[in-house]
Amino acid sequence: MRSDQPAPLSIKILAGAGLLFLHLPILLIFVYAFTTEDKTYQWPPPGYTLKWLEVTWNRPDVWEALTLSVKVASISTLIAMLLGTLCAAAVSRTRFFGREVVSLLVILPIALPGIITGISLRSAFNIADIPFSFWTIVLGHATFCVVVVYNNAVARFRRLSGSLIEASMDLGANSFQTFRHVILPNISTALLAGGMLAFALSFDEVIVTTFTAGQQATLPIWMLEELVRPRQRPVTNVVAMVVVIVTFVPILLAYYLTRDGDQVAGHSK
């Protein structure tokens, strides 16, 4: 419902207050990245400095965590794009026994609390005697990344008229050529949007990672550890700032790519 009358002042103030409540803390993180005081978060900051940027740049543990996070996010996203697309194609293009069940089971990981996913994966890895490694983290992340890609792809597949595929076949294209020339161009933006969201989700994931990682620390895990054991505290804030920027860009891009149509599902894990 849309009304043409301007909203009353009280509503405007309330809305503004709500937005401030949501976003002011993020701004605080940015401010503390430049404080001169490195033991406690003192307000107002006694002074401002850029030295923490340099300190962060020279800390090898930051780089390790960052590389690990980027690697995990990239590979989970790749796996998710492959499996999510295939699954979406199967569910939306064909009829088979148990189709609705499969559809539900694929979406389930995003509805389940991360802690459940984490615990169950951890015990599964234990039972199967799989040592915790880079790949166990990737597996954990892939469970919810698949959902994001699947949701985006399935919405696009539903809009894709079935006769397009028949028309392509009719004109001499086999299944592979039809996929390459008709299906892929029509679902590519949905895939890209799904992939970006998946990447962003994986990049700042903490809970599932806690249960599936061994000694390795992804960036969010590293930040958690830093907060518990304070040492050059503003470094954490600098990293947080970077994480915000890195996750914000793909989410924004995904939003622009799909705003005229598909919903961007699974925005909040």
Binding site: S161, S163, L164, E166, A167, S168, D170, L171, H181, V182
Partner: peptide, 27 residues
């Protein structure tokens, strides 16, 4: 279907939305 020397004009036309008219015809 792709090996039959038979072509179809579909009820909903089924034109490829991502291709130009020329590329549709040349498909």
């Amino acid at each position: 279907p792709y090996r039959r020397n038979v072509n179809t004009v579909f009820q909903d036309y089924a034109l490829f939305p991502h291709l130009s008219v020329l590329d549709n015809v040349a498909y």
